[in-house]
Amino acid sequence: MNKISVFIVEDEPIVLEVNIGFLEKMDEFSLIGMSTSGKDALEKIKKLKPKLVLLDMFLPDISGLDVLVQLRTERIPSDIIMITAARDAGTIQEVMRLGAIDYLVKPFRFQRFQQSLQNYCKMVGKIESLQMLNQEDIDKWLGNSENGIDLPKGLNEFTMKQILLGLGSAEPPITAEQLGQNLGMARVTVRKYLDFLAGKDKVQIELQYGNVGRPTKYYSLK
Rank of each mutant, 00 (worst) to 15 (best):
R112V: 01
V105S: 11
Q115R: 13
Q93N: 10
L71F: 10
S116E: 00
I101F: 11
G99P: 02
I101K: 07
I101S: 03
S78H: 02
E94G: 01
A85D: 11
L98Q: 01
V95H: 07
P77Y: 11
R87E: 10
Y103I: 06
A85V: 14
T73S: 14
I80F: 09
P77K: 12
G99N: 03
T73M: 15
G99T: 02
L98H: 07
R72A: 05
T91M: 13
Y103N: 04
Q93T: 09
M96E: 04
I101L: 09
R112W: 03
I83Q: 00
Y103V: 02
L98P: 04
F108Y: 04
E94V: 10
R75C: 14
I80K: 06
E94T: 12
Q114C: 10
I81T: 04
S78M: 06
R97P: 07
D79W: 00
I83T: 00
R75V: 14
A86C: 12
T84Y: 03
M96G: 03
R97Y: 11
A86V: 13
Q70K: 13
Q93F: 04
P107M: 07
L71A: 10
T73R: 15
I80N: 03
R109Q: 15
S78P: 05
Q111P: 11
R87Q: 10
T84C: 03
L104K: 04
R72G: 07
I76A: 02
L117H: 00
I83K: 00
L117Y: 00
S116Y: 04
Q93S: 11
F108E: 01
L71R: 10
L98G: 01
M96T: 05
D102C: 11
Q70H: 13
F113N: 01
V105E: 06
R112D: 00
P107V: 08
F113L: 09
L117I: 03
I80D: 04
T73Q: 15
M82R: 00
Y103W: 05
G90T: 14
